[in-house]
């Protein structure tokens, strides 16, 4: 009895979690005119019309490019800097190590708050600048701790023998440490990439330039436009009027849903691969979330 209830509960939960994504996929490939009559489980007709329409949207290629660029450069930069700093903190001979490490840890608990942060970014001239996407958040204390702890668990003899062979710190870092740290680096890279791809708040408050708009924010703007329109028409209260106007709007429903689909696809693609990192990721996520 308990088993039945439990299985039924989880089956329902799976549907609740996956159905919205399924609906989105099905809607995006259906004939728009048929889709408007209602879709529940299966696509009505098959067409890539919506995808073609999305490709014609102004600025969509650029938004996609910006999102990809920030994900690639942001991830690479943050992996490199966190790994390097983690390595440096693992070297006991570093002068002022304790003090600097403490200084880093404090940043996990104390922050200046939104407005001072905004003013600082503004004073640095980072408003409307691509670098605002990748530099301010590049070093995350928690990632540094993860890497430092990982390096400390490696046998010392590896580094000692390399040093006897005349290798400098940077050679040891790039030739020995980085390859050995691959498991933890992969975890950090994957979570950082997903975080970068999903990030939109920095775009929302620091960047107003159209050329630097990310895919996430582009989607948000389409939705806001649709919502405003919907509200105005809801107040007028005529559903037929409403439907007609929605069809004529710049981004009809099918197109919105397709943009959402395109924004979600990269996540769906890396997701199965990510699961291996879940447990390690909790530690990363617990801090970032």
């Amino acid at each position: 009895m308990f088993d039945i209830v439990n299985y039924a509960f989880f089956a329902l939960l799976i549907i609740l979690c996956l159905y919205p994504f399924w609906y989105m996929l099905v809607y995006s490939i259906s004939e728009p005119s048929l889709a408007a009559k209602g879709i529940t489980l299966f696509p009505r007709g098959f067409t890539l019309f919506n995808y073609k329409k999305v490709m014609e949207l102004e600025g969509i290629y650029n938004a996609f490019f910006i999102s990809v660029m920030r994900t690639v450069t942001g991830t690479a930069l943050s992996v490199f800097l966190n790994a390097l700093l983690g390595y440096l903190f693992s070297r006991t001979e570093m002068p002022g190590r304790k003090f600097l490490y403490r200084m880093l840890l404090v940043t996990m608990y104390v922050s200046g708050g939104l407005i001072p942060y905004y003013l600082v970014i503004k004073n640095y001239g980072l408003l409307n600048n691509f670098f605002v996407y990748i530099i301010p958040g590049a070093i995350a204390a928690f990632n540094v701790i993860l890497i430092k702890t990982f390096i400390e668990s490696l046998p010392d003899s590896l580094q000692e023998s390399a040093m006897l062979d005349g290798a400098g710190y940077f050679t040891i870092f790039s030739k020995i440490i980085m390859p050995l740290c691959l498991p933890i680096i992969a975890t950090i890279a994957v979570f950082s990439a997903v975080g970068n791809w999903n990030s939109w708040f920095d775009n929302y408050i620091f960047v107003s330039s159209d050329n630097l708009r990310t895919l996430q924010l582009t989607l948000y703007e389409y939705l806001n436009e649709a919502q405003t329109l919907a509200r105005l028409l809801q107040e007028s209260g005529n559903i037929e009027d409403y439907k007609r106007t929605m069809e004529k709007s710049l981004t009809p429903r099918g197109v919105q849903i397709t943009v959402t689909m395109i924004t979600t696809i990269p996540i769906l693609l890396v997701y199965p691969y990510m699961q291996r990192f879940f447990i390690k990721g909790i530690m990363v996520g617990a801090i970032k979330g």
Partner: peptide
């Protein structure tokens, strides 16, 4: 796998999904 997926999409995507389901049309 299924219940963890929503954690990895942004709030904008979640908003879009809710919009798709709960909005007027």
């Amino acid at each position: 796998t299924a219940t963890t997926l929503p954690n990895f999409v942004s709030w904008i995507i979640v908003f879009s999904l809710t919009f798709m389901i709960f909005s007027t049309e």
